[in-house]
């Protein structure tokens, strides 16, 4: 691998077995004024586990993602994360510097709208290289080699490295977002409707790519989607949200094939089958 800095003391080897949770949420609650965004959510996520949060618009799934990723502050409850040094920390107690380091090294965030997850005026190579530079890489040649490697992994031709994402199709932008996030080998990636608004054929390619990368790097993923097919394809576990609460959760195929709650049965029965 040509990112020697990632092996530097900044990131000691991951410790703790896969049986120790990576992410723990306890009683996560968020109010917007008097309105409940998300209420009393508890979850644990282990390394390599993919958790889908499904529900319709306004169900609180995006609020939950915001709370887990520290983009939103909870009204109550807390989020714990097992850092690369093996210590499990309350994320609210992190300093802003520590939080940012976490966000750009051990975490990734793939957003529905690429323009929120990419720097649209910066070339593809610069987008991929930004995280490397942010953690101190100061060798242009190495940054570029790593960027080319990652563009290849997400099936973007190397000759597009100096083009900026405004010239990319929707699917390419999403793949570039993924490369930009994975370049520091994060252990946890948040995804917010990553296939939203894409053509079906483009979606299929993106989902396949995500599936492969998740398996190859053993990523833990929290993916928010309203598309049950996406949840079925990518996730191990599923949480169904409605009106800010988790109403049903379990193994993905179990929840989708044997839904218990009225709302989940409605969701499952509303899917169009080709």
């Amino acid at each position: 691998m040509n990112a020697p800095l990632l092996n530097a003391p900044l990131f000691p080897a991951a410790v703790g077995a896969a049986d120790t949770p990576l992410l723990i949420a306890e009683g996560l609650t968020r109010y917007y004024g008097a309105r409940l965004g998300c209420g009393d959510v508890n979850l644990t996520l282990h390394p390599g586990e993919v958790l889908a949060i499904v529900g319709e618009s306004g169900s609180g799934k995006s609020t939950l993602l915001g709370l887990l990723s520290t983009e939103l502050a909870p009204s109550a409850g807390r989020v714990l994360y097992r850092m690369r040094d093996g210590a499990t920390r309350d994320l609210e107690a992190l300093t802003e510097g520590e939080r940012r380091l976490l966000l750009r090294t051990d975490w990734g965030f793939v957003r529905q709208h690429a323009e929120q997850g990419l720097r649209m005026a910066v070339s593809a190579g610069g987008n991929v290289g930004e995280r490397l530079m942010a953690v101190g890489e100061r060798h242009y040649g190495r940054i570029r080699a790593e960027a080319i490697d990652w563009l290849g992994r997400v099936e973007i031709a190397a000759e597009r490295i100096d083009d900026d994402p405004r010239t990319f199709s929707g699917g390419m932008r999403q793949r570039l977002q993924i490369a930009r996030n994975l370049v520091t080998r994060p252990r946890l990636v948040f995804m917010d409707e990553p296939t939203g608004g894409l053509d079906v054929s483009v979606q299929a390619r993106l989902l396949d790519l995500i599936r492969q990368l998740v398996a190859e790097f053993g990523l833990a993923v929290v993916i928010v989607t309203h598309d049950l097919a996406v949840a079925r394809l990518l996730s191990h576990r599923i949480m169904v949200m409605k009106s800010g609460h988790v109403i049903e959760e379990g193994l993905t195929d179990q929840v989708l094939d044997d839904p218990r709650e009225p709302y989940t049965q409605l969701l499952v029965s509303s899917v169009l089958m080709p």
């Binding site: 379990g250 193994l251 195929d253 179990q254 094939d257 044997d258 218990r260």
Partner: peptide, 9 residues
């Protein structure tokens, strides 16, 4: 069969 596999609860 599905219960044994855990596909049905």
């Amino acid at each position: 069969l599905k219960m044994v596999y855990g596909n049905y609860r």
